Measured scan of single mutants.
Amino acid sequence: MEVRTIKVFTTVDNINLHTQVVDMSMTYGQQFGPTYLDGADVTKIKPHNSHEGKTFYVLPNDDTLRVEAFEYYHTTDPSFLGRYMSALNHTKKWKYPQVNGLTSIKWADNNCYLATALLTLQQIELKFNPPALQDAYYRARAGEAANFCALILAYCNKTVGELGDVRETMSYLFQHANLDSCKRVLNVVCKTCGQQQTTLKGVEAVMYMGTLSYEQFKKGVQIPCTCGKQATKYLVQQESPFVMMSAPPAQYELKHGTFTCASEYTGNYQCGHYKHITSKETLYCIDGALLTKSSEYKGPITDVFYKENSYTTTIK
């Protein structure tokens, strides 16, 4: 009895394709271990004539594949690729409408935090270190965002349907971005203890939790000093293409032309909904596939993004 075979390709990165001759009487799992086709788990399936010449994702289970996976995804987590594939199996079914010149995501599976993050990423200057993220990001900007969303979920250790947080998501993504040249110098002034300067680099240099107003941050924000008295913390120097200011959701007025974009969060910790506000020729609110415009805006804002380049204080 002759062994019926077909020729397929296996890959971990969709760049390096490895030619395989597979036995049609055995499952993919018996031949390769966990195997995925377009995100779908085909591990328990036997090869079919229609699979001839198709590319299958496999887990990096030998040295060659491990090197290829690390170079593309910059992670050695053995569960990463499987999590990416199972997320992709959902995100490829989502709709990605162009809204006001940006790629958004039609609401499904509690994905409003991903839509808000995706919209924000198209408006701030950011370059990702893992080629996987950078490639998928370019495709997302062009309207094909399924891979990018699935990668975000995998890097953030999230599953489809789980509630997510924009600030946490951005923080994970910033860790995989090139923020080497970003720098922030802060000064804390206390009447009792004097003053202390701190220099922050990388992710810490672009994120701040405690106030939404970048102007206020430049002037000074009140913080408790270690001595128990009130101290003032203010920005001395900022070198970065953008800054992200966050605070627990509270009524906040966004003035046209003073910011790049913002995240609105309605609801409580267990259950809520994100919308995205962007400042173009007027203010726009993007909620999944829905767009509304207004000249002014007041609502429960939790993150505001500002364009920056270089700032030095005039406070002496």
Rank of each mutant, 00 (worst) to 15 (best):
V3H: 11
L163F: 15
C149F: 03
I301V: 10
V8C: 13
F259K: 03
A177N: 04
F128N: 05
P60Q: 11
K95Y: 00
S104L: 08
Q216L: 06
T64D: 15
S294L: 15
Q270W: 15
S181I: 03
T159Y: 09
D303N: 06
Y265A: 00
F217I: 14
G299Q: 02
G164R: 06
M170H: 01
K92R: 14
G39D: 09
L254Q: 00
I152C: 09
C225N: 00
I15R: 11
S263Q: 02
F259P: 00
D63W: 06
Q195D: 07
A40N: 14
C156G: 05
F70E: 10
T192C: 09
K255G: 07
Y155H: 07
S79C: 12
V189C: 12
P249N: 04
H48C: 10
V221M: 08
S240G: 05
L118C: 04
T260P: 01
Q98A: 10
I6W: 06
Q30N: 13
G161W: 06
A40W: 12
R83S: 08
T55N: 10
E125M: 08
Q134D: 09
Q230T: 14
Q270K: 12
S263E: 04
T55F: 05
T211G: 08
S213R: 01
S310R: 13
G257F: 00
D303I: 02
H176E: 00
S279G: 10
D62V: 07
N100T: 07
V21E: 14
Y137H: 07
R167G: 04
P34I: 15
I223V: 14
A136I: 01
F305R: 01
K275F: 01
P130M: 01
G267L: 12
L186H: 05
K95S: 15
K158P: 01
A132T: 01
D109T: 06
N110V: 00
V185M: 03
I124Y: 07
G82K: 15
K44G: 13
T313F: 15
Y297H: 03
P248D: 15
F80D: 01
V3I: 11
H256D: 07
C112H: 04
Y297T: 03
E296R: 08
A132P: 06
Q238A: 01
S50Q: 14
T169I: 14
N89H: 07
A150I: 00
N14D: 10
T43H: 12
K127A: 11
T314L: 15
M24E: 11
R167C: 05
F128R: 01
E168S: 15
M170F: 06
S86M: 12
I286D: 00
V189E: 12
K255E: 14
Y252W: 12
H256G: 12
L102V: 06
V203Q: 01
A145M: 04
N178H: 08
Y297K: 00
A136F: 07
D135C: 06
T260F: 07
H176K: 07
L186Q: 11
V185W: 01
A262R: 01
F217P: 00
N61T: 13
D109N: 11
K275G: 01
N89F: 12
S295N: 08
H176F: 12
S279W: 04
H18W: 11
N100E: 13
N178F: 05
T55Y: 08
V8R: 04
Q175P: 14
R184Y: 01
G202L: 02
V58S: 06
G220W: 00
T258E: 15
T192N: 13
Q270Y: 15
Q216E: 14
F305S: 00
I301G: 06
H90K: 13
A205E: 06
S171V: 10
A177H: 00
Y113P: 03
G210Y: 04
D303L: 01
G33H: 00
E281I: 00
R66G: 11
I223P: 01
R83Q: 08
R184W: 00
I124M: 06
L212Y: 03
T169N: 07
T10R: 07
T35L: 10
F305L: 07
E125T: 10
Q30F: 04
F70Q: 10
T91W: 01
K127I: 07
W94P: 09
F242D: 07
P130L: 03
R83K: 13
Y36L: 04
K95P: 06
D135N: 09
L283D: 00
D109W: 02
G299I: 00
P47E: 04
L153A: 01
N61L: 13
E71S: 15
S240T: 01
G228W: 01
A142D: 14
A136T: 05
L200W: 04
P300A: 08
F32Q: 11
A177E: 06
S104W: 02
E52A: 12
G53V: 08
Y284T: 14
P248L: 10
K280Y: 09
K218R: 06
T43M: 10
G53N: 09
S104F: 07
I286S: 02
D287C: 00
P78H: 12
K183Q: 04
L212N: 04
K307N: 09
L118Y: 09
P97E: 14
V206A: 01
C190N: 02
G53I: 05
M85G: 02
Y208M: 07
L163P: 15
Q270H: 15
L173S: 06
C149H: 02
V188P: 04
M244T: 01
T211Y: 01
Y234T: 08
Q30A: 09
A177S: 08
K233C: 15
K233P: 02
M24H: 06
E162H: 02
T103G: 01
Q222Y: 03
L37F: 12
G202I: 01
G161H: 01
W94N: 05
D38Q: 10
P300S: 10
C227Q: 02
C190V: 03
N110E: 04
L102F: 04
D109E: 12
C156T: 11
Y72W: 07
V304K: 02
S181H: 15
V304M: 00
L212F: 07
